[in-house]
Every structure is written in C-alpha cells, then in structure tokens.
C-alpha cells in the first residue's frame, strides 16, 4: 500500500506552477510523499516522478542526496541527535547511547519494537548554545540529559497507549539488538506532522497494487470517495470529484515533456 493517495498526487501536480521553473517542485513533492507514507518507497518516488513528468531515476537521485528524505521505514518519533563538535564536547554521545538503550535499537535503520521510535546521529543543527541538543517531532530539544530523554519517551508512549509504569524496561547493551525485521510498509505508523493520525481509513480495496520499478506507468484508479482519506493540511478539499482515471495531467508550463535530466 505504498502508493500515494489521489489527493496527494493532485497536490503534487499543483506544485510546479509555484516556482519560476517546474523542476523546483521536486523536493516539496517528495516532502508530501514522505509525509503521507512515513518514508519514500521506490514506488512513491516513481509516482512523484510521473506527477512531475520527471525521470524516476532523477527523482531518486535527488531523494538520496538529502538526509531528511528517508528511504527506509522510520519510527513515528525520530530522534535526530546532534553529535557534531559543540554537542560532542558537551556529552552528545552519552545522549545517543542513552537514546539507543531506552528505545532498544542499535542502528539508525532500525525501528523500536512498538514502531514508535528510531534515532539518527546528525550534523550540527545550529543551536549550539543549547548543546547537547536534538530535533524530535519538528521541535528542538535543548540541554539534554538522560532524564529529559526518559521524559520525552514516556510522554510519547503515553500518547500511543495507556501508560504503564513498567513499560519497556531499558534493554541492556549486551543483548541482541532489536532486530525484529523492520515493519512492513503497511504497518509503518503514520508520521506525525500536525493533525490527526493518518491511514485511519483502511485502504480502498481497489487501490492499485504497488507497481514494480520498470513496469509501465499506470494511472491510479480513482479511489472510491469513501476511501479517500481526509485532507490533513489546512483548508477544505480542493477538488471533491475524484480525478478521471484517464486524465493525464496537463503540463502546467509550456514545452515538451522533460526527458532525462538535462545536465550532469
């Protein structure tokens, strides 16, 4: 179920007109895709490419360049802990170790067993006067201590399930890492970025199966209106009527469809 929903694709198709040249829409479009799915699947990148009339390889090339695009499932709450110099000399690596212990993962590509948490060491986040610091859930958290980390974790567990004081004892470092296979895309909890949890509506049975890379592009069948999840970003739905299946998006700007990237 990695396909992007129709309304997200519609939103993506509206992006190019906002920029002096349409190619600038690629990152905002990937943002929307990642916001919906939690991370960027190959299928999602292909769909973004089709929506923007770019080559899928080009879009993937952009996505792999930037660290804020995730190509693997990540936890609902991801700890981006700065370990660059200013934070390192004020104990950032101790904070990273504590986070890893408390959420029970060893590596950035793992997700905690409950699907809630993952972590990543990042480069300087530009808040050095508050070192050690990190970014979590679109906010900066300053002057980190193990106690603050514990509190942040507890708060987030409380939101997901009734809090239990005994919840998840810290895993000891020696034990095998939480290598429970990364959750399948379908099980990936929605990324939070304001608004109610997504994926609440079960996917429409008619939803297009994930397309393998290389297969000819196909336009997603129109989702049944009932299955269309509610728009999560502000404002009413832009177009209530589902797009016609045959509707190839009209190119927003003149010129022939772009081919492969024009330059190296």
């Amino acid at each position: 179920m990695s396909n992007l929903s129709a309304h997200v694709l519609e939103e993506i198709k509206e992006l190019p007109a906002k920029y002096p040249q349409p190619r600038s829409a690629v990152m905002p479009a990937l943002d929307l895709a990642q916001e919906e799915l939690g991370y960027l699947t190959p299928e999602a990148m292909t769909e973004v490419a089709e929506a923007l009339q770019l080559d899928p390889g080009y879009v993937e090339g952009v996505a792999t360049f930037y660290t804020l695009f995730h190509l693997e499932p990540i936890g609902k709450h991801r700890f981006y802990v700065c370990t660059n110099l200013s934070c390192m000399i004020r104990g950032a690596y101790e904070i990273v170790d504590h986070v890893k212990r408390q959420i029970g993962v060893e590596r950035p590509d793992q997700v905690s067993a409950d699907g809630l948490f993952s972590f990543e060491e990042v480069e300087c986040l530009g808040a050095c006067e508050y070192a050690p610091m990190m970014r979590l859930d679109h906010r900066y958290h300053y002057d980190l201590t193990p106690e603050k980390i514990d509190k942040l974790i507890a708060e987030r567990k409380g939101n997901a399930a009734p809090p239990s004081p005994a919840a998840t004892p810290p895993r000891q470092g020696g034990g095998p890492p939480q290598d429970a296979a990364p959750p399948s895309p379908a099980a990936t909890p929605p990324r939070e970025r304001g608004g109610p949890p997504r994926n609440a509506a079960p996917p429409s049975p008619a939803a297009t199966p994930p397309r393998k890379r290389g297969e000819p592009p196909q336009i997603a069948a129109p989702p049944s209106p009932a299955a269309t999840p509610p728009r999560k970003r502000g404002g009413p739905p832009r177009n209530a009527a589902p797009p016609s299946p045959a509707a190839t998006p009209p190119r927003k700007r003149g010129g022939p469809a772009r081919k492969k990237k024009a330059d190296g």
Binding site: L85, S86, C124, E129
Partner: peptide
C-alpha cells in the same frame, strides 16, 4: 541554510 558547525546566529 545555516549549517556550519558551531554557528547558530541566523537561527
């Protein structure tokens, strides 16, 4: 795009 390590002035 302030990201030079040790720099937070633009923020």
């Amino acid at each position: 795009d302030e990201s030079e390590p040790g720099t937070a002035k633009d923020r």
